[in-house]
Simulated scan of single mutants.
Amino acid sequence: MSGLLGNHFITQIGILVNDIEKVSAAYADFFGIEKPEIGITDTADIAQTNYNGEATEARAKLAFFDMGSLQLELIEPDHQPSTWRDYLNEHGEGLHHIAFAVEGMKDKIMLLEGKGFPLQQKGEYTGGRYAYMDTFKELKVILELLENDK
């Protein structure tokens, strides 16, 4: 498969919100589906979140809607330094990222950084890891790489 990521299938769209309870209820009503459980990202010791090269305690409330082949992620960040918080402060609520499943996270990060797309934030979650690459200048959105453990 050609391309920098090895695939071109968007698996997730991430949307930043100020009030996840309100917005997830609105999505559930709009689509006539069940409102998902709202979770919170792991604590720093587990998540090992790193933003612009610095460790951060940042956490976020998350709600996931499975929309067929695509997952919609709502993100309500806390006030610690993170891509979520800075982007929300700067741009307001709305689209933050599109995500792609990858294999070989470290290699993909190095490849993208070599093409001029710096790593913005990375972290771990139960069952995998994520990385936000700053592709905004060229692609007008941040790309998230998702690697799930086999």
Rank of each mutant, 00 (worst) to 15 (best):
E113C: 09
N7K: 12
F100A: 04
K61N: 09
I10T: 15
N52W: 07
K122E: 07
I46S: 07
A101R: 04
E34G: 11
F9Q: 15
M1H: 03
I46V: 13
T11C: 14
L16A: 12
G123V: 10
K108R: 11
G3D: 08
H91Y: 12
V17P: 03
G128F: 01
G94V: 05
I33Y: 11
L62Q: 05
I15R: 05
T56L: 13
A47P: 11
D45S: 12
F117N: 00
E103S: 14
M105L: 11
A63R: 04
L145A: 02
A101P: 00
L4E: 03
E54S: 15
Y27V: 15
Y132W: 05
L145I: 04
E76S: 07
F100N: 02
L146T: 02
K122A: 01
G3E: 06
E138Y: 09
W84M: 05
E21C: 10
I38L: 12
L111H: 14
V141T: 14
A55I: 15
N148W: 06
T41C: 06
K150E: 15
F65K: 04
L4P: 01
F30D: 00
Q12F: 09
L146H: 01
I10K: 03
Q71H: 06
E90S: 09
H79T: 14
A28I: 14
A55S: 15
L74Q: 00
A131T: 07
L88M: 09
I109M: 02
E90C: 04
E21K: 13
E34R: 08
I75Y: 07
K115Q: 12
T83L: 09
T135V: 13
T135D: 05
A47F: 07
N50H: 11
